[in-house]
């Protein structure tokens, strides 16, 4: 099936990128060693990971209902965003060339997923799980706030409001990708841009861990900026969405720092001492 095809391509490409980056930036030996004593690591981050998985599950399971709820609330901000920023996205598209389009399509689909997944590997092998926890809390916060905003606001992207001014470059060059993006999100959920917010979050965390992963800082910076531009260049997001996403990223880092420095999630729910799901030896 066509969707399976798109997913397979994505998986292969991202796996390839991850392997190369892991070998170059982390090193196979460290990964091997980290995998060997995975137990304490998992025990440590378990409560955090559960929160993230919960939020993602809620997001996925309620997708049909949340869109109905949005339409009930009926806060349509599409036209307000357009009158706020005008034809900014068209200006971004004015630099277009076939090569740039290929680049941004690649970044939007593959680069983005790679950017989000790689930190899990990088931070998992560290001898201290603080960065890993910050990463998870920041992601969870981004997705959580995103979910709330998506329910609250109805916002169509530029390609849906001004197709005569802005081209839907992603879906024109790679129509089948819409099979995948349609599964992941509704077209009324563009404010804020989670692409921009999560990508920026990764870069900000890379900056915090610059001592250990020096090369990751410029790489994640280029990728994060590229992802943010790609969302506009491809006609999917407004500049406003990207700005809101960037602000969300900054807030998510502060929240993550606050939560993790106090290890606030360590003992919640099933991860209470009595439950003892993992061997803490």
């Amino acid at each position: 099936m066509a969707l399976a095809d798109v997913v397979l391509r994505l998986t292969v490409m991202v796996a390839l990128l991850l392997s190369v980056a892991s070998v170059a930036l982390v090193g196979p030996r460290r990964i091997y060693r980290a995998l060997r004593d995975y137990r304490w690591r998992l025990a440590d981050i378990g409560p955090y990971l559960t929160i993230l998985v919960l939020i993602l599950a809620i997001r996925k399971l309620t997708m049909d209902y949340t869109s109905g709820l949005s339409w009930l609330l009926d806060l349509n901000i599409t036209a307000s965003i357009y009158s706020l920023e005008g034809t900014l996205v068209a200006d971004v598209q004015s630099i277009r060339s076939p090569m740039l389009t290929d680049y941004f399509v690649f970044i939007y689909l593959y680069g983005y997923v790679f950017l989000l997944v790689f930190p899990f590997i990088a931070y998992f092998v560290r001898s201290d799980m603080t960065s890993m926890k910050e990463l998870i809390v920041a992601y969870a916060f981004n997705y959580g706030v995103g979910l709330i905003c998506y329910v609250l606001f109805i916002a169509f992207g530029p390609r849906n409001l001004i197709p005569d001014i802005v081209d839907s470059l992603l879906y024109v060059t790679y129509p089948q990708s819409q099979l995948l993006t349609g599964e992941v999100n509704h077209n009324t959920n563009v404010f804020p841009s989670l692409h921009a917010s999560l990508a920026t979050t990764v870069f900000l965390l890379a900056w915090r861990t610059r001592d250990q992963y020096r090369a990751w800082v410029p790489i994640s910076f280029v990728l994060a900026v590229s992802v943010s531009i790609a969302t506009m260049y491809l006609g999917i997001h407004w500049g406003t969405d990207v700005v809101a996403g960037t602000i969300l990223a900054v807030i998510s880092i502060s929240v993550a720092e606050y939560v993790v420095s106090r290890d606030m999630l360590a003992g919640w729910g099933p991860f209470d001492e009595e439950w003892n799901l993992f061997d803490r030896a």
Binding site: M1, A2, Y171, V172, P175, Q176, Q178, L179, G182
Partner: peptide
């Protein structure tokens, strides 16, 4: 199918 463009591609791929 999400768009006419995707539908045309899927016809091209004989799907």
């Amino acid at each position: 199918t999400p768009s006419g463009a995707a539908a045309i591609e899927l016809i091209e791929n004989d799907e």
